[in-house]
Structure formats: C-alpha cells, structure tokens
Amino acid sequence: MIANVNATRMELLRLKKRLSLAKRGHKLLKDKQDELMRQLMEIIDDVKEARLEIEREFQSILQSFTIAKSKMGPHQAEEALLFPTKKLSVSVTKKNLMSVRVPIYEREVEGDIIPYGYLNTSGKMDDSLINFEKFLESLLNLAEKEKTVQLMAEEIEETRRRVNALEYKLIPELEETTKYITMKLSENERSNIVRLMKVKDIVRSH
C-alpha cells in the first residue's frame, strides 16, 4: 500500500529518514526477541522440573500434616496453630532481565515454626511443620521462576507483534512510497525536459 503523500522532494527526504529509523528499530527488536526467546528456553525446563518436584513434595507434607491433624482431632490442631509464632515476610526486589522486570523474593523469617507446647500435640505434626518450613524456600523460588516465565512470555508476545508490524507493514509501506515518489519525480523531470526541447524546436522553426 502506498501512503497518501505529496510527491515532493521534501516528503521523500522525510520518508527516507523514517525508513532508516524503522529498519534500525526492527533490527533491535528482532535481536531483543531472539535473546528473550533464548533465555526463556533456558529456564523453561528448570521451572517444569521444579514444579513437578514441589507438587510431589507438597503432597507428601500435606498428607503427613493431615494425618497428624486427624490424630490430634481438628479442634485441638486448630487451637495449637491459632497463634503462629513464626513471622514470615518477603522482600521483593526488581531485577531487570532484558527490560522485563522480574521479581526476586527474599524471605525474612522470625520466630520458631512450632507455636505450641509439645504436651498435647503429635510428633507427626512437628515433623510436617519442620519439613514445610524447609520446603518454603523452594516454594518461593518456584514463585519467582514462574512469575519470570509469565512476564517473559508476555514480553515476547508483545515484541513479536512489534517486530511483525514493522517487518510486514511499516517497512514495506515506506519502501513502496519512496519508490512511488522517486518515480513520480523522475517522470516530472523527463516531461519537463521534453517540454523544453519541444519549445526550443518551435522557437527555432520561426
């Protein structure tokens, strides 16, 4: 498609500038897309492995926890855990990964995981809680990684759209339009020369 422009030299210059800018942008975006893709591929297997591992582990922890709970009776279990002594807070820092801002979680823990006296509770409960505490680290890790994958996937999609818009729409359009203008201008030039020659002929014949 040819853009609706006046076939003038000024317009031609302007279009040429835009074209070179578009080409540079296209190259940069394409590089960005390739690199993002490479990095995504690198972490994708890790994430999948981590996810499977965590699901397995969490289920076994949950099972032992449930057994402990049913041993103690639901009310007592709830009572025992009513006031958690452990304080978990997470600090988030941003990391810039190819202009994608991904979170890094760091946990800050205070207090002991076991908030109850040992008298009324089952030992299985202690075990599952301690296991869960250890497990938390990998859970946060997974949260971080999964978020990274999601954010990167979004970014790649966006970049791909931009690259395609430049490659298949803007750049061809600009190229065609500059071509159209050069043709038009040289046509004008030729018709001008012809006219001059004709005029000269008429003048000479008099």
Partner: peptide, 23 residues
C-alpha cells in the same frame, strides 16, 4: 520492598500455611 504472603484455599490446607505466618 517488603511484601506480605497470603493463602487461599480449603480450610484443611490453610492450617499449615497459618503455621508459617501467612495470612
């Protein structure tokens, strides 16, 4: 930046998250 942790789910599972201090 500090942030908080929450858990949403069935009651049975929530108990264990309570123990670690999540909301």
């Amino acid at each position: 930046m500090k942030t908080k942790i929450a858990a949403i789910g069935e009651k049975d599972i929530m108990l264990i998250f309570k123990a670690i201090g999540a909301d």
